[in-house]
Amino acid sequence: MSWQAIDRKSAPADEGPGLSDAVKEKIRAFFPRYETKRAVMLPALHVAQEAIGYISVRAMKDIAELLELPPSAVMDVVTFYTHYWTHPRGEKVLMVCRSLSCQLMGADKLQHAIETKLGIKDHETTPDGKFSFMTEECLAACDHAPCLMVNERMHKRVTPEQLDKLLADADSDKLPMPRSDLYDAPHGEKPARGH
């Protein structure tokens, strides 16, 4: 229910870390792309989450300052989208698709296996801070059902038997491709963009 904030069962204990100057500079680089500063909200939140792992209250305030908005406007957006975490999350976030195709192909069993193996439920983090688990509505890879996403990387046709290997694999979240420089330099005036 996107009108209910799933990740805010409890208020965060403290304001958490803020954004560094480098991160703020990255966010400012998005300004020329849009007519209003507010439109940089989603990219800014992505950048912030990439930098500090989640969206802390301090980060919300920092972004609000950058975008010239009240902090409540930032929190309003953060709590709508399911990808933004308002609590610290694990190093690897396991996202299991639970939509119809995946469910027909055994996503329930996969979810059960993860929950018993890690001892956590939906939207929780293991005590050692290594893994978080969440379910997701359709990852748009129904031809490879059931799918499991570990941070950025999609794992296709995952069976509960493969799970041990997958959890032990340190590179299970790395994409085997060069990263794009989107968050480093905007298009437009700078023709050399480092490829």
Binding site: L42, E137, P186
Partner: peptide, 9 residues
């Protein structure tokens, strides 16, 4: 430009 969403149908 690409604008990335954050999970909302």
């Amino acid at each position: 430009y690409i604008h990335r969403g954050a999970g909302a149908y």
